[in-house]
């Protein structure tokens, strides 16, 4: 049934889910929600399975007309949310009725917010996923960001019997200075003092920061003397920190598959969302950790999400 009619689309609003796995060997990037924790909770708060898609909002939120009764929840970056002009909180279930006007404003902290709604968007799965990959014009709503007058249908007609609120201890802060944990490699042997520079200085997020990658600005990271700066082209994982010839790091994200520059280190999967919640001008510092510790963090993160599932 019809769920939402977009009035103003916001900065860059796309349908995203867990990502499109299984086709990176054919050059199809992962895509998906950049902040997977906020994505997950946006679904939980409206009673969806975590496989449903949500709308990823960037810096400026959309406004939309509600076409049928449903539950919505806004998670992630802090943005002003109102229903018919009445301010509403984030990280909880909100019941809306046909004719309601929902307005989501400018970001106050963080960068990306996630709007979940009952049933999730009813759109065709492309290669197993609803995620929008704008570069390839596939997935989501016609393979593009949402525009005014787009009407999004939802799956099913169910509503929650009572609203939910995420307990405070789970709600993250989105500071303008973040520390993210990274493991040296895969091409750590291409660097010597550049490795020390990466892990001991602060980098500023440049204006070139999107779902493909974040270009950073700060102390130069030189390649080790005698080592080539480029490598035989190979695929990358989200969070790879690539060093191009200008020696300024680029964090590769989810719409990137193959690159030919050496990658000095890789941000752990649990911290990708922290990167995605920074905006140009914010500061990122890197903390070096080993693989064993990173795997312990991944297991703890997995357990935390499992506990969260049992709350609802």
């Amino acid at each position: 049934m019809d769920a939402i009619k977009i009035v103003t689309p916001g900065g860059y609003s796309t349908i995203q889910d867990q990502g499109r796995t299984g086709f990176q060997n054919m050059g199809v990037p992962l895509s998906g929600a950049l902040d997977q924790f906020a994505y997950h909770t946006a679904n939980l708060l409206v009673g969806n399975t975590t496989l449903a898609a949500v709308i990823e909002l960037t810096v400026m939120g959309p406004s939309f007309e509600v076409l049928s009764a449903m539950d919505i929840a806004l998670t992630g970056a802090r943005m002003n949310l109102s229903v018919n002009g009445d301010p509403k909180p984030q990280w909880c279930t909100i019941r809306v009725e046909p004719g309601d006007l929902v307005a989501i404003g400018q970001v106050e902290s963080g960068c990306r917010a996630y709007l979940g709604f009952s049933g999730g968007p009813d759109l065709p799965r492309i290669m197993g996923s609803l995620s929008t990959y704008v570069g390839g014009r596939i997935g989501g709503f016609s393979g593009r960001p949402l525009q005014a007058d787009d009407v999004i249908k939802r799956n099913g007609s169910g509503l929650l019997s009572s609203p939910w609120t995420l307990p405070d201890e789970y709600i993250p802060e989105y500071p303008t200075e973040v520390v993210v944990r990274a493991i040296p490699g895969p091409q750590d042997d291409h660097f010597d003092r550049g490795m020390d520079t990466l892990f001991s200085s602060a980098y500023m997020v440049s204006a070139k920061a999107d779902r493909m990658g974040y270009r950073l600005m700060g102390h130069n990271i030189p390649i080790k003397e005698g080592m080539p700066g480029s490598i035989v082209s190979e695929p990358s994982v989200p969070g790879s920190i690539q060093i191009p010839p200008d020696e300024q790091p680029i964090i590769l994200l989810v719409e990137q598959t193959v690159g030919g520059y050496a990658k000095i280190a890789t941000i752990i999967s649990a911290d990708i969302g922290r990167v995605a919640q920074t905006t140009p001008g914010d500061t990122i510092c890197f903390e070096k950790i080993g693989l064993d510790r990173a795997h312990q963090i991944a297991r703890d993160h997995h357990d935390m999400l499992a506990r969260l599932n049992t709350l609802f």
Binding site: A182, I183, P184, G185, P186, Q187, D188, D189, E234, S236, V237, G239, S240, K263, T266, I267, I268, S269, A270, L291, A294, H295, I297, A298
Partner: peptide, 19 residues
């Protein structure tokens, strides 16, 4: 990070990637 000297050579690509 090279994690083995034997052939093939293994490299660590974060907590979810192995080359």
């Amino acid at each position: 990070m090279k994690t083995s000297d034997s052939n093939p050579v293994f490299r660590t690509a974060g907590d979810t990637g192995l080359i």
